[in-house]
C-alpha cells in the first residue's frame, strides 16, 4: 500500500509518513477507518513481532463506515479496544498517556482529523509533536475550525461549506493548527454577503 499523495502546500500543513516499528518500552496505536491497514502493515513486518506483548491498539470505525476491527483484533496484541468514536475513546487515551513513561511510542493512522487529535493529546501529555508517528489512510475529509464562532466541523468534504455551528459559509484554508487539530475556515462572503460560489467536493 502506498502512502497518500498530497498537493504541495504551505508550511503549516502537516506531512505524513509511513508507520514503522519504533524502539521503546510500550507502543500505543490509535487508528480510525482504513488506518487499521497501516497498523496491520506494520505488524506484518518481522521486527514488529516482539512488540505485540507491549502494544495497545485503540480503534474506531471511519465516518464512512469502514470497520476493520476484526483484522486488528486478530493481531493478538496485549490490549485491543474498539471505540464507537474518537470522542468516546478520549478518556481512555488520556488515562493511558497520564500513566505512561518515557519510552512510550505513539502511532496514529487514518484520517487527518484523527491523527491531529492523537498528536494533540500526546503533546498535552508531554511528548514532542514530532515523536508521534503518523500515516494517512482513507478519506481526505478535513476537520475544520470556524475562525468566527470557534466551532469545529468534522469530516468536511466540500469547499466552501456551511459551518455546522453558526451557519456561515466558510472556505477551507490549508493553514493548520496542531493545537486545535484543525484546518481554518473563513467566511467566504464576508465582503459581499450572499455571494457564495458553488461548493466543490475537494476532500474525498
Amino acid at each position: 500500500m502506498t502512502k497518500t499523495m498530497f498537493e504541495p502546500s504551505i508550511t503549516s500543513r502537516p506531512v505524513y509518513g509511513v508507520l514503522s516499528p519504533g524502539v521503546g518500552s510500550a507502543h500505543l496505536f490509535v487508528a480510525d477507518g482504513e488506518g487499521a491497514e497501516a497498523v496491520c502493515d506494520l505488524f506484518a513486518k518481522a521486527e514488529a513481532a516482539e512488540m505485540k506483548s507491549a502494544s495497545h491498539i485503540i480503534y474506531m470505525p471511519g465516518a464512512n463506515g469502514c470497520d476493520r476491527s476484526a483484522a486488528l483484533q486478530a493481531l493478538g496484541v496485549a490490549q485491543f479496544y474498539r471505540a464507537p468514536s474518537f470522542a468516546s475513546a478520549q478518556p481512555r487515551l488520556a488515562k493511558v498517556l497520564a500513566d505512561a513513561h518515557m519510552g512510550l511510542q505513539v502511532y496514529a493512522a487514518g484520517t487527518e482529523g484523527l491523527m491531529a487529535q492523537v498528536a494533540t493529546a500526546a503533546q498535552a501529555a508531554g511528548l514532542p509533536y514530532e515523536a508521534v508517528q503518523m500515516e494517512h489512510r482513507g478519506s481526505l475529509a478535513r476537520r475544520v475550525q470556524c475562525v468566527h464562532c470557534k466551532g469545529v466541523t468534522e469530516n468536511v468534504t466540500l469547499d466552501p461549506f456551511v459551518c455546522s455551528h453558526c451557519g456561515l459559509s466558510l472556505f477551507v484554508r490549508d493553514h493548520f493548527s496542531r493545537r486545535i487539530a484543525a484546518f481554518q475556515g473563513v467566511n467566504i462572503d464576508a465582503e459581499d454577503p450572499g455571494l457564495v460560489p458553488a461548493s466543490v467536493e475537494r476532500f474525498k
Binding site: 519504533g22 524502539v23 518500552s25 518515557m102 519510552g103 512510550l104 514532542p128 514530532e130 515523536a131
Partner: peptide, 10 residues
C-alpha cells in the same frame, strides 16, 4: 536515551 525510545527533542 535513543535506544530506550526517548525522542530526540526531549
Amino acid at each position: 536515551a535513543k535506544a530506550m525510545g526517548w525522542p530526540d527533542r526531549a
